[in-house]
């Protein structure tokens, strides 16, 4: 048995998914965040806070609970991993006005999550400017050891890039049934994170938006199941 398979088995026993990525070990959490134990760093991508209210402004009164739902999941993940720092990998707010529309209750929830740890806002296309009054530090790109964190994957980036933006989803068809879920997509040198927000949709990683980003022979989808991650070979994806 090769080493990758052995660690995959280990992880499976613990219902954890450990990714060997650019020489470091990362844990893909079934909730959709990524933990780097060595640095005690937790990463969320594409929270799209206040997406609900961005629609309400235009007359679509979709339920205003998305921010609350997203932030409670963020809080749960933070409680689970107890990170010393957190990266929010861009598109943290759905639009420039999102921070202003944040109801007080949720502003408090977010502030509680940020208290006692470093917090980095990576800029995204939906939120090129960092939140004005929430604290934390802002950056377009962040390099940490062998890893580079940015919102939008760069086609020519080197090994170790972790990004979001594309909201990857994997789809399989078995026995005439189609299953579609969010996933972490990686070929070992690039990793694209699933969108974390409660109202964020997804894009099939077979879509042309992903073309040229991955070495298809090494691409795996780490698919978010109800309680665990399922690692699925790209050959099985449709």
């Amino acid at each position: 048995m090769n080493q990758a398979a052995a660690s995959a088995l280990d992880a499976e026993r613990n219902h954890e998914c450990i990714l060997e990525f650019a020489g470091v070990q990362l844990v893909a959490d079934p909730a959709g965040c990524l933990y780097w134990p060595q640095e005690r760093l937790l990463v969320f991508s594409d929270l799209h806070l206040e997406k609900g209210s961005s629609q309400a402004v235009r007359g679509r009164m979709i339920p205003p609970y998305d921010t609350g739902a997203t932030l409670k999941m963020v809080r749960d993940c933070i409680n689970r991993w107890q990170p010393s720092s957190v990266i929010s990998l861009g598109d943290s707010f759905h639009d420039g006005g999102g921070e202003g529309r944040l109801p007080d209750e949720f502003r408090q929830l977010l502030t509680d999550c940020m208290t006692g740890r470093d917090w980095v806002w990576i800029s995204g296309n939906h939120d090129p400017m960092p939140p004005a009054a929430l604290g934390g530090v802002a950056a377009d790109v962040l390099a940490l050891g062998p890893l580079t964190f940015r919102h939008e994957p760069l086609p020519q980036s080197g090994c170790g890039e972790i990004s979001g933006h594309l909201h990857p989803q994997a789809r399989i068809v078995r026995r005439g049934k189609s299953v579609r879920r969010r996933c972490f997509a990686t070929d070992g040198s690039r990793l694209i994170m699933p969108a974390f927000g409660a109202y964020t949709g997804g894009l099939n990683i077979r879509d042309k938006a992903f073309s040229g980003l991955f070495d298809l022979s090494r691409l795996h989808a780490h698919v978010m199941g109800r309680e665990r991650i399922y690692t699925i070979d790209s050959k099985q994806l449709v």
Binding site: V179, H220, Y230
Partner: peptide, 11 residues
Amino acid sequence: ALLAEAADELL
């Protein structure tokens, strides 16, 4: 179950 099956195949 289908996801688990697909994952098992890889393993």
